[in-house]
Structure formats: structure tokens, C-alpha cells
Design a protein around this nucleic acid. Structure first.
Lengths: 186, 186
DNA sequence: GTCTATATAGCGATAGAC
DNA sequence: GTCTATCGCTATATAGAC
């Protein structure tokens, strides 16, 4: 599962081959197919796994005393940390066989819905409290947070070599919540 | 070339097949291979084409009387318009054979460098003028603008059905430059 | 330049022995 | 549950005639 996660993050679904996964795990391809009926199901299991990690983080975060926007920032930070650690399988926004398979996958859809509901509560809470721009559609905020999982800027900034991983995340957290434009009042 | 652009935007490099391109154009696959020596070169030509369109837009924009940040906003808007029009071939941030080919492709690299230089001038100009947050590394701003070309939020917001394409772009322009957090002073 | 036909290779998936 | 061996298909790329 960890191998799939890493390869999926590294190369994407189409470029990842089942042979590679099997080789990385150290078993035969046929053995892998005894556990997962298809490449799509294999990838879906990796997606479910990361969503379970996300749900566990949300539980932990909900127990913490903080304002809605601080919870959202913590979520964004966690998401980017997972991506930089190479453990975030990239979501297929493009049309693909994986996308079709995920849209029929109960376990995946249920988890996405649960995560979205819980983030949605923080988003509307933060908007009501004047912490998140109330003019933005809540879905736009939600999608923007999800997009932190596949933000290509993280890898580019890291590749630049001038910033530590934590600095990269701080920059992106600032860009995400405060924008590129200078703020007259901080 | 337009077919490649569209298919590349729709399905990505790995999922796009040369057969599809040939069928879409209405010629035989072998005929296509008389013009382009490989699938990578075919895709690279599409990338070069969109970069030339970008350079033409930068010329036009440079002739307009405006402050650096307004130029940058216009560029971001143009980029998102092209993406929503289905004419933006997605950049391969992941490892792939295309990425390797592009890194050896003079025409592509030259154009990327030229675009980056011209955007870079506006970025540092906007930072000096206090319009862009001066604490952000200029590369972070540059990469963030490039990332508008493959922002998955655009497609998700459009799929939601509640916003017109122009509204989607306005929301994302606001998110990009002003951030998710509410501004105390606008 | 365009076509038909084909070479070549890699991939997802399966058969069947142990 | 794991293996070796292989099927069937599709993809990139090429040969060679017109």
C-alpha cells in the first residue's frame, strides 16, 4: 500500500505499472492480483488509505481548541506535508479509467463526502466569523484546500534548493490564505 | 496542432494516443509520423505553440498602460481563459518521458525562459511598488502564476454549475491575489 | 504527403502448478 | 498465497507502395 502510494504520487496513475508495484513490494505480479482485482482497485485502495489518514487528522484537529480558520490552515499544512513526503497519490482531475472507477467506489465516495462535510463546517464557520472571505462560494474554498494535495508549486520551490521543506510550506500557506498581493493591514 | 492541444488538455500526455490524434485530424497515423518524429515531439510542438501564444499576449499586454500587478493579473486571467477553453496542454510536473524530452528541447526551454524573464520583471516591479507581498520569493510568485495553467479548481467550479466561466475566473483571480482569508482593508 | 500493413514491445490480467 | 509462464491487447513506431 505504501509502495502504491509513493509510485502514484511520483508518476501518476497512467505511468505507474503494476509490474513496478510488484517489484517494489518484492512479490510477483500475480500475487498482487490475488489481493486486488484490478489496477484501478489497487489505486483506489491507496486513495482510501490516504483519506483515512486525513480523517484521523481531522479527528485530532477537531479535538484541539482553535478557531475555524486555524483548523483550516492546519489541514492545508498537513496536506502539503503529506505531498512533500511523497505520500499523496495525485487526484485525477482529468478523464481517466481511474476517475471512472473512483466514481463507482463506495468506500472512496463515502470518505470524500465525510471529509468534505467536516471541512465545510469549518469553512462556513470561518466565513460567519469574518475570517474567510464571505464573498467566496464555500465550494471554491473547499476545492482550493483539496488542491493543496496536488499543488505543483511545492515541488518546484523545493527543487529551487533555496528553501527548506517547512519554508516551502509556509510560503504556500501564506499564498493560499493571504494571496500574492501585499496586505495593507496585517 | 489544435487537436493535440485539446487532447493533451483533456486526457494528459500518457492517456493521449497518437491514434486518437490521427483520427481527430483525419489522416493516417503514419502521415502524422512524417511530420513529427515521436509522440514527445508532437506534444512538445503543442507546448511551444501555446508558449508562442503566451508571448504574443505578453507583447500585447506590455503595450498597454498599466501597473505591474495589473499586468500580472491580466496574465493570470488569460492563462485561466485558455485552460477553460480546453486549449492548455497540462504541464507534466510528474516524472514522465515528456518531461525528459522537454528538458532537452531548445525551442521549448528558450520560450519558457523568455516568458519567465518577462513575468519576472513585472513581479519584482510589483514587489518594489508594494503591490505584491515583498516577503514572497519571486520564484514562488512566478510558479504560482504558471500553476494557473493547470489549476484543477477551475474545472471543479465549472462542473458545480452555479457559476459562469467568467465568474469562475473572477473567483480564482481573487483567491490567487487576495487569498482565502478576509481582508480587513480592501 | 498520404496510405495500408506490420514490426516490436510493454502492459493488464489470467492459468495453473506448488 | 506465492510463483512461473503466458495470453490478449494496445501502443509507439516503421516499411514500403502510390
Amino acid at each position: 500500500m505504501a509502495s502504491v502510494n509513493r509510485l502514484l504520487a511520483e508518476k501518476g496513475f497512467e505511468a505507474m505499472t503494476v509490474d513496478e508495484v510488484a517489484a517494489d513490494v518484492g512479490i510477483a505480479k500475480a500475487s498482487l492480483y490475488k489481493h486486488f482485482p484490478s489496477k484501478e482497485e489497487l489505486a483506489a485502495a491507496a486513495m482510501v488509505r490516504v483519506l483515512d489518514r486525513a480523517l484521523a487528522f481531522l479527528d485530532q484537529e477537531a479535538a484541539r481548541e482553535a478557531s475555524p480558520i486555524d483548523h483550516l490552515k492546519a489541514v492545508a499544512r498537513w496536506t502539503m506535508q503529506v505531498q512533500l513526503a511523497g505520500e499523496m497519490p495525485s487526484l485525477p482531475s482529468q478523464n481517466s479509467t481511474l476517475r471512472a472507477a473512483l466514481l463507482k467506489h463506495r468506500g472512496y465516495l463515502d470518505r470524500v463526502m465525510t471529509v468534505s462535510d467536516r471541512l465545510g463546517a469549518w469553512i462556513t464557520g470561518a466565513q460567519a466569523a469574518g475570517q474567510i472571505d464571505a464573498r467566496l462560494p464555500p465550494e471554491a474554498v473547499l476545492y482550493t484546500l483539496y488542491a493543496r494535495a496536488c499543488d505543483p508549486v511545492l515541488a518546484f520551490l523545493r527543487a529551487g534548493g533555496n528553501l527548506t521543506d517547512e519554508q516551502v510550506i509556509d510560503v504556500q500557506l501564506s499564498t493560499c490564505f493571504d494571496g500574492l498581493a501585499a496586505r495593507r493591514v496585517t
